[in-house]
């Protein structure tokens, strides 16, 4: 069997610990001046790719890929500090890419870079679409295993345990294939200092959508974005009697 040539797409998103705020025009979430970092699910997919190599699987090359504003190179550097070998960044400042556009782009990258395994986060935490991996599998006509919680590769056979309602499901397929990862797959490592240094010297190629001949025009229109209704504050009661009468008042007892 030939070696594993892994593609790991990563996305720069608003940091998960930051409370998102809707912009004034109610058209999107406010992103300027907000801390961004790598989509947490993508950290898991990078980690898994690196662990495959550490488990002495025949990993030839781990390619991290991102598309979006030029700042996305920060998350690519993080991916490389975690263990990816090189990166490609498609710079697109204006249009926000939709899952189908990204999937088409990835299909081109897979072809150009002769990938035989794509490990993606199951979704990104900004749009929560959970579509890109599935669309890519459709475009390439490859087998897919979504929401992976365990991945094993033996020869050219891949065994994936995935979490489903009420239990787990074990799938087996032959490479090439698409895997999307879920939270319990692994615990991503910290980017260590020596590796951060090394990552600066790893090749990072910048491209544009035009290089791939992809039309990224939006097919969907965001009509309105609203924040969830604010939580109604609770009341305090003075004592047990107060609580009982309050509960009665609310018809709870």
């Amino acid at each position: 069997m030939s070696g594993l040539r892994i593609l790991v797409p990563v996305k720069r998103v608003v940091d998960y610990a930051v409370k998102p705020r809707v912009n004034k025009a109610q058209t999107a979430v406010e992103t300027s001046g907000v801390k961004h970092s790598m989509n947490p699910f993508d950290e898991l997919s990078i980690e898994e790719a690196v662990r495959l190599r550490e488990r002495k699987m025949p990993v030839e090359d781990i390619l991290a890929f991102s598309a979006g504003p030029a700042k996305s190179q920060d998350v690519l550097r993080t991916a490389m500090a975690m263990g990816a070998d090189r990166g490609i960044l498609v710079v697109e400042e204006k249009t926000e890419l939709e899952p189908l556009g990204v999937a088409k782009l990835l299909a081109k990258v897979v072809e150009d870079e002769k990938r035989n395994l794509v490990i993606l986060g199951k979704q990104s935490i900004d749009d929560d679409a959970n579509q890109t991996g599935q669309m890519l599998a459709g475009l390439l006509n490859w087998p897919q295993a979504t929401q992976a919680s365990k991945v094993d590769v033996e020869g050219d056979t891949c065994t994936v345990v995935r979490e489903v309602d009420g239990g787990v499901e074990t799938l087996r397929a032959k490479l090439p294939m698409i895997i999307t990862v879920d939270l319990r797959l692994n615990e991503p490592r910290y980017a260590s200092l020596p590796n951060i240094m090394k990552a600066k010297k790893k090749p990072l190629e910048k491209k544009t959508l035009a290089d791939y001949g992809i039309d990224a025009n939006k097919r969907l229109k965001t009509v309105k974005v609203t924040e969830p209704p604010p939580r109604q504050g609770g009341g305090k009661v003075e004592d047990v009697d107060g609580m009982i009468s309050k509960l009665k008042e609310l018809g709870a007892i």
Binding site: Y16, K35, Y190
Partner: peptide
Amino acid sequence: VSDGVVAQDESQLQ
């Protein structure tokens, strides 16, 4: 320093 890590996001920082 012999080794080190840098927090890449808010949760690592915490």
